[in-house]
Nucleic acid binder design. Sequence first.
DNA 1: TAGATTGTTAATCGATTAACAATC
DNA 2: TAGATTGTTAATCGATTAACAATC
Lengths: 213, 213
Amino acid sequence: MEERVISQAVISRLPRYFRYLGELKDQGVERISSQDLSKLMKVTASQIRQDFNNFGGFGQQGYGYNVEYLYAEIAKILGLNQSHHLVLIGCGNLGQALVNYLNFERRGFVFCGLFDQNPDLWGMKIRDLEVKPMEQLEEFVRGNNIDIAVLTIPKDSAVKVAEVLVSAGIKAIWNFAHVDLNVPASIPVENVHLTDSVLKLSYKLKSMNDKDA
Amino acid sequence: MEERVISQAVISRLPRYFRYLGELKDQGVERISSQDLSKLMKVTASQIRQDFNNFGGFGQQGYGYNVEYLYAEIAKILGLNQSHHLVLIGCGNLGQALVNYLNFERRGFVFCGLFDQNPDLWGMKIRDLEVKPMEQLEEFVRGNNIDIAVLTIPKDSAVKVAEVLVSAGIKAIWNFAHVDLNVPASIPVENVHLTDSVLKLSYKLKSMNDKDA
DNA sequence: TAGATTGTTAATCGATTAACAATC
DNA sequence: TAGATTGTTAATCGATTAACAATC
């Protein structure tokens, strides 16, 4: 309904709010003030209130926020009120790890098809799904209402595969390949660049050492 | 030498610069201007020059930047001129994927010890390293000059294990557990929260659909 | 009602972009 | 030298924090 554009910074904080509220809910906490949540999460209460108010007022003056309600609202904001169909492309160690990670399914992210280039893997089963040849990917995406493609293949093939996915009508890409994909702006891409992550850590480690010295 | 504090935003961009410069180097490109690099990377030339100048002047007026030199300088900034010793804690699918990913070793991130709670895995070999019981972790970290601990264990045990690591003198933590660790500010933590990542993607996917509707 | 705490506006802070003098 | 492009200062933009009136 609202056409407001939410900043990237806010979006990045949503999953963390969601996680903390889920934990509070599991602990049976009924309500929480922005101030208490701010202590817990180590961010300012001001930021919390600003963030939530991007999506409308979820709180009540003098009371705070109802944990269960706020949790449910954030779930809706994140699109978790509907399930998503995924395909995995690249069934190596990392790909298998993702398929076997049950928490995704718990949130409604369901793997429907697994694909690999390597004939040795064809027919192999990961959690009841058979690995299929890459040649069948395009048709599968077209025919099975797939939302998200998970790219866990080497960078050399990733760009080409992404193009295939786009032409097959994929709606979003979760990219673990260490390369920037070139897809239309209407198709969101979320990158997980593990190498970048460890390099950042290396930088921080080094600058800590420099301080000490 | 410089005591300047570099902003988080700049640090986050360094690995991406490093990746692009590496590719240019491999392609045999000798020099590049901030403008050409900006087109390639889809950021402003201004930002590129500002970013590099946080660390000193690497370019030359009228010429641009020497690719090989700049690449080497960024490697140094990232701390890649020295190798790092890692331990893996949690030898499930994801942990195995990381150990088997050869590019880390190529950059000097060397796994030296693998640990797991599960007795069934003890003695199992991943790339010539034997999985050891968790009980041996603390002593191993103390005795083997370990820099970075990689946490690929469920969130319930992660906080406690992190405390053990801290008392054993770990220098940095690469955390894949879906929980915020509580360690001293002097020990950098880099989080890879895959669930957060897929939720962000879900949000973007949803807001795309809203736009279309 | 009085106290608490939100929603929201205003102030501050920081990051990005623009502009241009310095200089290769 | 003239042209190109950096390094750096100034201007703009956006995000965070502070403050407080609204209100439960």
